[in-house]
Design a protein around this nucleic acid. Structure first.
Length: 548
RNA sequence: GCGCCUGUGGCCCAACGGAUAGGGCACUAGCCUCCGGAGCUAGUGAUACAGGUUCGAUUCCUGUCAGGCGCACCA
């Protein structure tokens, strides 16, 4: 029996291809999918369909020919897959479906059970250092809904990549100087005057939120009016943000300050680097970056005619620093308003001599907040927007994290506060957690220890038992999909399906009070299910209640 | 005007270009002498429109219609 069966099956397919068409040059690797329906086996390849064009034959004929050689290969003496694969069939339009033996799944189950004390965390030799930068909101106010979604998506993606063996660090880029910060300082100054009884006119483009008054009051109470208000305000708000994120279960490894970046002279250095490479030019009194060389629509200003930097300037230096710090893959999560910015930063990365693929930008679409089906109006300008804090206070960490992950990251998300608060079947968080609590309940009543020598997992052959075991087996497959799509949302779908498989099993079969050997086997099944649910919920940053 | 995202049953969402388009809610009918009914089983019902590419399109391309967002020498 072989663990980690997929690469072996891919090899079998490759060998069969070579035997069937020795002269064929086909660069794509055969890919294995989970079939759309369980009656098509456990793993499926559509290689025959994709070969249809180059071979100018019908997919069905190709599949049949290929199948013959696949079978020969598998039946050869001593082949490692001999006992794992029960059957191979060519089906449908030309799919080659692999049906795995129950024995294989039973061994997999035993494996999960044995590893339950340690983590299922896998090491595929993927040690690549990855930096995920997300949220990075200006420290000028509390975090909003949009930041909340980014925070969860980034955090969970980081968890998943860590689980799969990458060396991942989380970073928050701190915009601690510039226009917005000056406006923040000025907003505080005006509120201070207001406190002293002066009549003030508060400009529209200043921060309207009540929290500015809070800061002003604190400054006045401590008698710190002479302090640098920009710095004081930034630090004050940063603490608020850190607290919000911590309560949301998001922790950053690094907080990278733009101010310190500028002070270090690294921005100037990157300019001399780019100048040497001839990627800069002057026009109309401004300094431009020739981003069009690398596929951008137009060249971009980096130093304005008044001598100050545009946003892009420190960003180029910042990303150069990321590479210098040893990271080989950079993942940035941005809001949809930054979408037009991707090409120019990619251009910058290429100008720095890095491959385009070393920067991956994930656009996290906005979330709209609803209450009982009605949208909650938001206006940033008037400081009236739903904050992360409000969501946390109202629906709690578990439900809000889960809800932010329930749609594809690239899709709009409608977040209904009332639904998220409900403790009913409408709420998938509780459905999943309930499975965990239910299992815990049974295991609490379970007497004695499992005798591994007498354990016989082949007793697990009921439909619901096999279905549950297969679901467990799909866990690592699911994580690979999350990695490939750079989107953690599939994990929420999987965990709901796993919970469902468990509930179905539970409804049909009893664990306790059976013949001793069967009870033992089923206890192992529950333990393994609990392990996978536990790992999954941990990755999502959601609590695992023993009781509900 | 240009760019991005999205149009799938009454409602919310799935489906690397692949098999009879899945699931949840709601609705209807069932299931507790038995490990937690926050559960399970069954039923009704859908790809916005018009073309194109393909052996095959919900998916890719073009156009139309509808909704959301963004278009700076702002960050």
């Amino acid at each position: 029996m072989k663990k980690n069966i997929q690469p072996y099956i891919v090899d079998v397919l490759k060998d069969a291809l070579k035997k069937s068409w020795p002269d064929l040059i086909f660069k794509e690797e055969p890919i294995l999918d989970l079939p759309s329906d369980s009656r098509f086996g456990e793993l499926s390849s559509n290689i025959a369909l994709r070969l249809s064009k180059p071979l100018k034959k019908s997919p069905r004929d190709i599949a049949l020919l290929l199948l013959e050689n696949v079978k020969k290969e598998l039946n050869s003496k001593g082949h490692p897959l001999r006992d794992c694969v029960k059957e191979v069939k060519a089906e449908g339009a030309g799919f080659i479906n692999f049906y795995l033996a129950d024995r294989y799944f039973q061994e997999e189950l035993g494996d999960i059970y044995l590893k339950r004390e340690i983590s299922l965390r896998q090491d595929y030799g993927r040690k690549k250092p990855v930096l995920i930068e997300f949220v990075s909101a200006n420290p000028t106010g509390p975090l909003s809904v949009a930041h909340a979604r980014q925070a969860v998506v980034g955090d969970v993606l980081a968890n998943i990549m860590l689980f799969l063996g990458f060396k991942v660090k989380r970073e928050y880029y701190l915009n601690d100087e510039g226009n917005q910060i000056n406006i923040l300082g000025n907003s505080i100054a005006l509120r201070l005057k207001e406190l002293s009884g002066e009549n003030i006119e508060f400009p529209e483009d200043h921060y309207q939120g009540e929290y500015i008054r809070d800061i002003a009051r604190e400054i006045k109470a401590k008698g710190l009016e002479s302090r640098d208000l920009c710095e004081y305000g930034t630090r004050y708000i940063l603490n608020v943000i850190k607290k919000e994120l911590a309560d949301f279960g998001v922790k950053f490894d690094y907080w990278y300050s733009q101010k310190s970046l500028r002070k270090s002279g690294k921005i100037k250095k990157v300019f001399s680097f780019l100048r040497k490479k001839d990627f800069l030019f002057e026009q109309e009194g401004a300094l431009w970056f020739k981003s069009t060389i690398f596929g951008d629509d137009k060249d971009r200003v980096v130093i304005k005619s008044d001598g100050s930097y545009t946003y892009l300037a420190p960003d180029i230096a910042y990303h150069r620093e990321k590479f210098r710090r040893g990271f080989r893959l950079l993942i940035n999560l941005w809001g949809p308003d930054h979408h037009g910015y991707i090409n120019r930063l990619k251009a910058a990365v290429m100008a720095l001599g890095k491959p385009a693929g070393s920067l991956s930008v994930i656009i996290v679409q906005l979330a709209s907040i609803f209450r009982e089906g009605k949208p909650v109006q938001m206006s940033t300008r008037r400081g009236q927007y739903i904050t992360l804090r409000e969501i946390l206070d109202e629906v709690g960490k578990d439900a809000s994290r889960f809800f932010f992950l329930m749609r594809r990251t690239s899709s709009h998300l409608d977040f209904d506060l009332e639904v998220a608060k409900k403790q009913t079947a409408e709420n998938p968080v509780y459905y999943t957690q309930y499975a965990y609590a239910r299992i815990s309940g049974i295991l609490r009543n379970c007497p004695g220890k499992i005798d591994l020598r007498r354990l016989d997992l082949s007793l697990l052959k009921e439909k619901e038992e096999i279905a549950l075991i297969k679901k467990l087996w799909q866990f690592s497959f699911t994580l690979e999909i999350c990695l490939k799509t750079q989107d953690p949302y599939m994990l929420t779908v999987y965990l709901q399906e796993l919970a469902e498989s468990f509930h179905c099993f539970y409804d049909q079969h009893r664990v306790l009070g059976q013949e001793a050997k069967l009870t033992q086997a089923r206890v192992v099944l529950l333990e393994a299910t609990k392990v996978v649910l536990s790992e999954g919920l941990k990755l999502l940053g959601i609590s695992r209640p023993e009781k509900m």
